[in-house]
Design a protein around this nucleic acid. Structure first.
Lengths: 140, 140
DNA sequence: CTACATCCTCTAGCGACTAGAGGTGCAAGA
DNA sequence: TCTTGCACCTCTAGTCGCTAGAGGATGTAG
């Protein structure tokens, strides 16, 4: 049972030191044991948990969703319907976000392409911003 | 010169009342004149400015970028290179975001599709979260 | 033994709002 | 005229997920 310092845990997991402490403070990570001198001392299982959290954050899950997912992981006999639902909800969010960003991209491309590179009073960028009606797709 | 209350301005522009006050507080909107009873009283030009801000926010521009864009709009003889640069930077951001969200979507789709709908200990969603190596594209 | 990196706790800040408390103004109906 | 009730006012604090910095303690290598 080798002890792992918070700095090592950070390097290992890719989660920054203050972020690890933050996760502990909001109860996402349980309080680790401490050294003589009151320094946090982690175990390998904590690294797995950190990796889980980091991966979930990379996938854009909210802290609350991650909390639920971690609870599920801790209790493997539960039905996985909730995990499935959380992932599905996130997928739908991501799909919507992609759609809206695609519309934005089209708009921005149009703006940038048609910029006259002259003075502001002829600038398409400013003009379109000032008048939504000049957008390619009024819905974005 | 008809007076417009903050509530009407909100309905007209689609920007919420507290948000309008917030924009004023951070200097994005200049302080409007007031009625006898100290209530804000807007003019049509303010509505244009609000519409501009709202549109820019919808396109994801940051407040600081909007501040710059508004300054440019106010001074039409300036070259529009800065406006162009701001829009281009935003376009690049959006493109990157779309790429990364597409990767996320692929990952989430895989997760959701391969979910066994059984118990957590066989759940693909939890499994993949716990082990980044099981991702379709390790880079996301 | 000293230097220096790393750790500790605590508070405050970020961006862009949003919510709520506690009070005032105003217009319309009785 | 009075009252009802909505819209307005200011102010503070909260949201999310961290991040930064102060000021001090610990741990390790030379």
């Amino acid at each position: 049972m080798k002890k792992i310092t918070i700095g090592e845990a950070a390097r290992h997991s890719g989660v920054k030191v203050p972020t690890i402490r933050y996760y502990e403070s909001i109860g996402l990570l349980s309080e680790p044991s401490r050294s003589e001198g009151n320094q946090r001392s982690y175990e390998p299982a904590d690294l797995d948990r950190l990796a889980f959290i980091r991966h979930a954050r990379e996938l854009g899950f909210e802290i609350d969703a991650i909390r639920t997912l971690l609870h599920l992981q801790d209790d493997p006999h539960q039905p996985c319907a909730s995990a499935d639902a959380i992932a599905k909800a996130r997928l739908i969010e991501v799909e919507q976000r992609i759609r809206s960003l695609n519309a934005l991209r089209a708009e921005l491309e149009q703006m940038v392409e048609s910029c006259c590179h002259g003075r502001v009073d002829q600038c398409r960028v400013i003009e379109v911003l000032a008048d939504h009606g000049k957008c390619v797709h009024p819905r974005h």
